[in-house]
């Protein structure tokens, strides 16, 4: 995919509008999802700023992993935005989404059908920021650990560790959510909201690595 993208990037650098459009379509969904975890509802604004800068700086792009380059721009714009907003770089736990998840994810088997993109992103956003970023860059943007590390200014190994911890945390979270995984045996009673809240919060408060 990277090879294809580099050809497209070259075409876009030469002024090919369709090539740029392709880049946008390829990258924007992932960028937007990643940015949502960073800046919440302002993600679209930050994404717009990002594309503005991408189109301006594209002639200066000298090769390498284009997605990593673009994501770095997005992340810088997000950090600027957060500095302006002085907000925490994480999404508040979307209660509604979690309630839906709790009632929908009856079993682990059905989870694949029931978890929507939005819910999944909201759950990832409850992770400690480092882990959330690592998971999103790896799984949603599709960067390898090395590229993700360059975006985050960390080593590839650190990204792997953070992603691993994040996924494990998510696994525990999902297990608690689903009655099949835990010992909640009450029939007909969906997992109580009060139960899902603290569990999430506890996992969220857990310190990130190092």
């Amino acid at each position: 995919m990277t090879a294809d993208l580099s050809e497209v990037v070259t075409a876009a650098q030469a002024g090919d509008e369709e090539a740029f459009r392709f880049l946008y379509r390829s990258l924007q969904p992932g960028l937007l999802r990643y940015l949502t975890a960073l800046v919440g509802a302002d993600a679209e604004d930050v994404a717009s700023e990002t594309w503005l800068q991408i189109s301006r700086d594209l002639p200066g792009f000298t090769g390498g992993e284009f997605r990593a380059w673009a994501v770095t721009i997005a992340r810088n714009r997000a950090m600027d935005h957060l500095r302006r907003m002085r907000r925490r770089p994480s999404l508040p736990v979307p209660v509604q989404a979690l309630v839906e998840l709790a009632s929908d994810a009856d079993t682990a088997e059905r989870a694949s059908e029931t978890i929507g993109t939005e819910t999944a992103l909201a759950l990832i956003a409850t992770l400690p920021p480092r882990e959330a970023e690592a998971v999103l860059l790896r799984a949603v943007i599709g960067l390898d650990a090395g590229s993700a590390g360059r975006v985050l200014g960390r080593r590839a190994g650190a990204v792997r560790t953070a992603a691993h911890r994040g996924l494990r945390r998510l696994a525990v979270l999902l297990e608690r959510q689903s009655p099949a995984g835990s010992s909640v045996g009450v029939e007909g009673v969906p997992p109580p909201r009060a139960g899902s809240g603290p569990a999430l919060r506890a996992s969220h408060v857990e310190p990130a690595d190092g």
């Binding site: 924007q28 694949s112 998971v135 949603v140 599709g142 996924l167 998510l170 525990v172 297990e175 995984g181």
Partner: peptide, 28 residues
């Protein structure tokens, strides 16, 4: 913890383009 739900979650997080996600295409 079971891995299946996590796979499903990641797949959902990286799921197909949702309506509205490309709304800024023309502006870009």
């Amino acid at each position: 913890p079971p891995v299946e739900p996590v796979i499903a979650l990641l797949a959902a997080a990286a799921g197909p383009v949702r309506p509205g996600e490309l709304a800024g295409e023309d502006a870009a």
